[in-house]
């Protein structure tokens, strides 16, 4: 977690209302469903790729263009397409945020 000022909070709230809430209204989507189990008697999911190839380690995230490219590649053809560019634009408000030294005590840090 990081501490933010009122302007940053406003920017985040506007982003959420503009980009996340409309997606949430797409009722036909189950956003957390990552596929059903391989068979009726299992909840395991097979992995399309079982190994990490040498190039899989290379995910350039050194600047805005690289971050946009990585996210848009991941979200191409999905309802999230276009969100990468917006996130990177939003990131310009957050170039100097302090890191918090504490971990939440009431929720597993999964975000």
């Amino acid at each position: 977690m990081s501490s933010i000022n009122a302007a940053q909070k406003g920017a985040l709230t506007r982003f959420y209302r503009r980009h996340i809430i409309p997606l949430a209204r797409l009722r036909e989507m189950d956003w957390l469903e990552r596929g059903i189990g391989d068979a009726d008697d299992t909840y395991f999911l097979s992995r399309p790729c079982q190994v990490m190839a040498p190039d899989d380690f290379c995910i350039p995230l050194g600047d805005e263009q690289q971050a946009i490219h990585a996210l848009e590649q991941a979200w191409a053809g999905t309802p999230l397409e276009g969100l990468g560019r917006e996130l990177v634009k939003l990131a310009r408000h957050f170039q100097h945020t302090e890191q918090e030294a504490t971990v939440a005590s009431y929720i597993y840090e999964m975000f």
């Binding site: 977690m1 990081s2 985040l12 982003f15 959420y16 209204r25 170039q95 945020t97 975000f111």
Partner: peptide, 21 residues
Amino acid sequence: LVHAGAGGLESWLAAAPGWLS
């Protein structure tokens, strides 16, 4: 967050600064 809809705003506010910076 999309799954959570409006209820996810608090999680977003907590997580986003770390992600974006």
